[in-house]
Amino acid sequence: MIPANFEYFAPKTIEEALQLLEQHGEDAKILSGGHSLIPVLKLRLASPGVVIDIGRIAELKAIKVDGSTISIGANATHAEIAANADLKTHCPLLAETAAQIGDQQVRNRGTIGGSLTHADPAADWPAAILALDAEIVARSSQGTRTIKAADFFLDLMTSAVESDEIVTEIRIAKPEQPAAAVYLKVPQSASGFAVIGVAAQLKVTNGKCEAASIGVTGLAPKAFRASSVEAALVGKTLDEAAINAASAKADAEADDAMEDIHASGDYRRHLARVFAKRAVLAAAAKA
């Protein structure tokens, strides 16, 4: 890697990091696991004057499951989330999604906070975070705010995080039926990013869908909740006809579909429908 010159800071506390961020403003970029920022630096698509490495801030790593709330530190790696026993019990969707990101080396370095902030439209986390209705906690030297997952992804590579903010934590209310969830994806053959990824978290009682929450990544410039599918499922008995009818609406919220050498927009829309169906079937089967 031959990036442009930059000044490097490795603060040990959040306060110190925020102070640096305030001091350097737009000229600074936050480095966590490096899997988003380093490729950008390598290709000189960005040449920040200052890189603030938050990787040594220990408090950002914690994964806590208390009462009805799950809290994941922004610096938790995908591998740590995938291996966490509490999450496997109380929110398996998180562990399952984490396990499907990239490869082992990527999972060992990449962090949930970094991935979310980068807002890559083909990243895996956005689907799960949307399906879990998570809240993202962002701090600046001015204070702390929480952003709902549904408001977090603004556009292609654009999240709601301001340039003076650092994502510190992801908060999730424990799902009522943790096991009734799944993340299914079609990995792009080169990068492993999602050509399409569908996360489903359901609540099913006696075969009837009481709640459905479905996140779709890879299809549109930003990940989204498949509200039309959700609406079509809730209150229904989850038989093949109901699931087929609902999943046919998986791309309804996508005004634009992404197109590249790996898949056309039409194919991505088709895959969204197929994988919404498969995700609902798989999640319902686990309920």
Binding site: P39, L43, Q188, S189, A190, S191, F193, I261, H262
Partner: peptide
Amino acid sequence: LTGELMDYA
């Protein structure tokens, strides 16, 4: 178009 390992499989 396949100039990186992100796109060349």
